[in-house]
Amino acid sequence: MSNSKKYLQEEIIRTSGVNPKKCMRCGKCSATCPAYDEMEYHPHQFVYMVESGNIEPLLESDSLYRCLTCFACVDRCPRSVEPAKLVEAVRLAAIRKQGNNRMTANDVPELIDDETPQQLIVSAFRKYTK
C-alpha cells in the first residue's frame, strides 16, 4: 500500500473509531441496509475496502450520500463493527476537502417547500457541507 493510501486509511480508522478487522464477512450490514439498492458500494464493501486500503473509489461515490445513518447496521452487526460510523468518516474525508461541499445555501430555496421542517435543512447541511 502506498503511503498516501495508508495515511488515508489510518485517518478513516481513527476518526470513525471502527476496527474493520473485526468484520467476519457475514454481510448482515448489507442485508439490513434500507438504502442498499441506491448504493454503488454497500455497507459490507465499505468495511472491506477500508480494511484493504482501497478508499479512493468510496470518496468519489454517491453511496456516501445514500447512507441514511439509521444505525440498523450498527445495531445488528454481530461483530460490533459499526459500518455506519465508517461511512460517516469517509464522507467527512470527502466533504472536508476544499470545494467538495455537496450543497450550498444557495441551493436550498429550490429544494424546500412550505412544510419543510427546519430539522431537514440542518440535517442535510451536516451531511453535505463542511
Binding site: C26, S30, A31, T32, C33, A72, R76
Partner: peptide, 16 residues
Amino acid sequence: GMVGKVVPEGDKLIVQ
C-alpha cells in the same frame, strides 16, 4: 450472506 431483517406481513415473512 446473512439475513438482516424478517418482516411479518400478512401470512408471509419478508426475509431481507
